[in-house]
Design a protein around this nucleic acid. Sequence first.
RNA 1: GGGCGUGUAGCUCAAUGGUAGAGCAGUGGCCUUUUAAGCCAUUGGUUGGGGGUUCGAGUCCCUCCACGCUCACCA
Length: 505
Amino acid sequence: MADYTNLEKVRLEKLNRLREQGIEAYPRRVERTHSIQEAVEAFLAQEEDPEAPEIQAVLAGRIRSVRPMGKVIFAHIEDGSGRIQLFFRANDIGVEQLDFFNQYFDLGDFIQASGKIFRTRSGEISLAVSSYRMLAKAITPLPAAKESVVDGEVVSHATLSDPETRYRQRYADLAVNPDVRRIFQLRFNTIRSIRHFMDSRGFLEVETPILQPIYGGAAAQPFTTYHNQLKQELYLRISFELYLKRLLVGGFDKVYEIGRDFRNEGVSYKHNPEFTQMEFYWAYADYRAVMDFTEEMLAYVVEEVLGEKRFTYKGQEIRLDQPWARIELRQGLIDETGIDIQEHLTAEELAAAMKDLDMEVDPGASRGKLIDDMLGHYLEPTFIQPTFVYDYPREISPLAKTKPDDPDTVERFEGFMGGMELCNAFTEINDPLDQEERFLEMGRSYSSEEDEHHPLDEDYLRAMRYGMPPNGGFGMGVDRLVMLLADQPTIREVLLFPHLRESGE
RNA sequence: GGGCGUGUAGCUCAAUGGUAGAGCAGUGGCCUUUUAAGCCAUUGGUUGGGGGUUCGAGUCCCUCCACGCUCACCA
């Protein structure tokens, strides 16, 4: 067990003394009659009605502040619904009970308190305590120096702010920083409203394997694992795509999944090794329909979560109450960089044109990669307002159908907001022969030894050979959407337990 | 992986190379409507780890660890 700090030793000693007196510091049963919010609401109703009886309540919560004043004590307790002041008075409970509280109760302890709801002279709704008992003794003090309520707002003074401790001990961060709790409330509201929108549009929520014998659907490095009894190498999925599209073959027309993807790559303010993705596949739709649908979905979600179709991210107002900008990738690059990718049909030519403009060029990159680099560098940061960029190079889009009149360009779009890529969609390939060829173009092989990083998913092709309806597919980084809605600059702030290195403690 | 920066009490932060401090929390006392309650007293440190320079290192140097920002990477 850990070494205890002096502060912890003091509390352990209090715990021991309670136990010596036969007092259970962690009782099994609680007699709570109201949440704090319910008690406050009941009291407000009683105040409106002169005939109404007084509100007697048994409340439970964590002690967040204590102000002992001789023969009276004020304290605030907090439960999941809110906080309320406790008022202990020697006249009501006796000096002995008052002293007992002072001796054995600390900030962070959970307490049950019974009594009548009333207003103090200063007008604060409070519980006049007639009896109380310990529900859970806290050994480690919460990392907050002090809290107060100013104009109804909880103000924390010198609260926990070290990011490392906040992420490693998220429980303490959440316990002490109400704003952090709000971010996660918003996160889960966001996911719920995505779900609600998809359900209302007739999509079926499904679950597909996270442990996969062959990974695919994206260009990321996977995490590998191993099933001992089956003696089988497995991968954590990098996308849901190939499994969800198998379901279209099976006869489900509209499916979606919200879940975790895992990518064994760099960590940044917008990348975490595991992240939440929403993907849907929609039979008989194409990327134009998906684009319209995306616009509707995000306007709906933003309004559901924030109450209006606009919000502020990094000081800039982002509006979803108007149509998204729609920019053809080729035209966008012409406008921003002056380079027309149609005039540079090989990687060498394009790289030369880029170098002429003093752009950094990744040596050995394919033409598609160079185009994507330019998009990421010169266009993406400028897309603050919701923007669709459409029609991408074939060679970086192996699952997307080409345009009818242009075999080198595919029907694909990405959605941007706040200078970040948010989603990615295309008219999906449903021609098994075309798909096989595209896989082979990407360097995937039937022999896993040749290129074990990009194994060819033969079962997926088999599924497609049974007949897959034309369809449009879509994937969105849910964490990034939450970053936008919560106005948070890093993905870590919207992940409950973001990845950190081992601390070695 | 590169560059820059940070790491001091439970929390938030000070400290020209010269005795490691403050506020809050904690502990003891006073105080019967407070709300960062107040007043008096007081405990608390291997200055992230290791090594070096120096009469003397929180401070300068080396190294390791963690975190942050940034660049690179990232269909």
